[in-house]
């Protein structure tokens, strides 16, 4: 089956500006799971600009599979009910440019590399940026990933989180500069 030609021109994106907080905040939005639930992991990091300065007026969204690799499609991504895993979270950066989520390690089909889909928004960023945050644990799957293999090691490193001794995930994002994060087009 072939894809028919597009009939409607896409609405262009714009920056979120400086005042998004009261517009897009929702209750416990960065708690994809309860922080004290078994299996909860902290995914966090710092967003930096091209001068290495933290970006305190950005936000990140993640959408991830459940630990068994299934992508959640349960309704209610916006209203936490304490038992439905929706896989979706949103986190504002704080004054130090740091974002944090409590979530689960996403699973993946056997042999495939697991990752969170992620989107970055900020004042000063004219349009949103898609990226991925890969789990660092399955090195064979990471090595076999065709997309990661197409990148040079420095680029690849910007997409793979670090596992801390406590079992958490640390992942910084650079909007610009020497360690600029790889951003995606689909």
């Amino acid at each position: 089956m072939t894809v028919p030609p597009r009939t409607h021109r896409a609405t262009p994106g714009q920056t979120v500006g400086p005042f998004f907080a009261y517009g897009v905040e929702f209750d416990r939005m960065h708690q994809v799971v309860d922080p004290y639930a078994p299996g909860a992991v902290l995914l966090g990091g710092t967003i930096r600009d091209g001068a290495g300065a933290p970006v305190p007026d950005a936000f990140v969204e993640i959408f991830g599979a459940d630990s068994d690799g299934r992508v959640p499609q349960a309704r209610g991504a916006f209203r936490r009910d304490d038992h439905t895993f929706t896989g979706f979270g949103r986190a504002f950066t704080n004054e130090d440019g740091r974002y944090e989520f409590f979530t689960r390690n996403p699973g993946a089909p056997i042999g495939r590399a697991a990752f969170f889909a992620a989107i970055v928004y900020a004042r000063g960023l004219p349009d949103r940026l898609h990226t991925r945050i890969y789990l660092p644990d399955d090195s064979a799957a990471l090595a076999a990933d065709t997309f990661l293999s197409s990148l040079v090691p420095e680029e690849r490193a910007t997409l793979v989180a670090t596992r801390t001794p406590e079992g958490h995930l640390s992942h910084d994002i650079s909007l610009q500069g020497e360690r600029e994060t790889v951003f995606l087009a689909f």
Partner: peptide
């Protein structure tokens, strides 16, 4: 404010 906040490399096309 976009000067230091926009990526300078091309977006990577991915499936």
């Amino acid at each position: 404010s976009s000067i230091l906040r926009h990526p300078t490399k091309n977006l990577k096309l991915v499936d």
